[in-house]
Amino acid sequence: MVHISDRFVVVIPVFNQLHFTSQCVESLLRQHVETDEILIIDNASSDETPLWLAQHSELRHLRNRENLGCGCAWAQGVVLSPDAEWIVLLNNDVLSGPEAIHNLLDAAEREKLGVVSPALLEGPNDYDFEDFAPKFQKNMSGMIRRGRFHGVCFAIHRSVTEKIGFPDTDRRLGGYEDAEFFFRCRRAGIPVGIVGDSVFHHFGSITQKAIKQKTGQKSLGDLKYFRSRVGSKWWSRKRDKFVSRFIFRKWISDERAGTGCSLHMIRRDGAWELH
């Protein structure tokens, strides 16, 4: 693997949950991501995260004095990485598959995508991800779902932020920042997609669940406000839901036909659900 200087930076917003952060970083390093290609934005963690970051000075990091939210952390990552061609925005509750970041960007460039996400295996890691991921990736390589990306991991080409701006920092969007960015991409005609050349295991919105449990909030964002921000009307949502149902069924059918898998699988009770 040839290291391309300034090709990318991986931006990881964190709020507590040090166990997940540390194993996420370790998995990236095992897959040939360099320490100077990782930027951790600490949103005022109150656990041992600040101490851990201080002990790992080889990792670039920024600590916010208060929790500014995911969107602000993403935007900070873009601002602090002016020379990176790609900004990879990544949850901390994930494990990297084989060469996941490099393969993700290679696929994006091959498919001429401005924003790209990897395949996801979600839920408990009760299936030996390290053994399963290489086989899954080999089978799914070359497959693509055009017109979608997801907030667990999405890489943005520099040209995209120059065209439509940074991820939104509005705190009222909490949890909908990726969806707001998707709406802007769609309106600007930015090609986006999910590719099978790269895969991550996602434990499942660990930070959001922890914040909800601590605060008692059912949702971190204001759904009505989000819809008004992006101009999402009732009739357009019904239309999109109707169309998406058929699109996703076709994706799953096509992907399953040759492999028995899909680009999004959820682990429940020791078995896989295709999504």
Rank of each mutant, 00 (worst) to 15 (best):
R63M: 03
K209C: 09
L113Y: 05
D269L: 06
G142L: 00
D83Q: 01
G175R: 07
V195G: 10
L223V: 11
H102L: 05
G174V: 01
T169P: 04
F242N: 13
F248S: 03
A108W: 03
P98Y: 08
R65C: 13
H61F: 14
I266D: 07
I12W: 00
T215G: 08
Y127F: 07
S22A: 15
A107F: 14
D170Y: 15
T35V: 15
K163H: 00
Q208N: 15
V9N: 04
F246G: 04
P50F: 02
F20V: 13
A108C: 00
R171H: 07
E255H: 00
R7C: 14
I4A: 01
C72G: 15
E109L: 09
H102F: 10
F242A: 13
S228W: 14
D168N: 13
I12K: 00
T215V: 08
G69Q: 10
S244G: 09
G77C: 00
D170E: 12
P50C: 03
L113H: 11
L59Y: 03
G165P: 04
L18F: 05
S253Q: 05
I41L: 12
C185T: 10
A155L: 10
L113S: 09
F20M: 09
L62S: 10
C261R: 07
S228P: 15
Q76E: 15
R187D: 13
P82T: 13
F226C: 06
S244R: 13
K250C: 15
S46G: 02
S198D: 05
L105D: 03
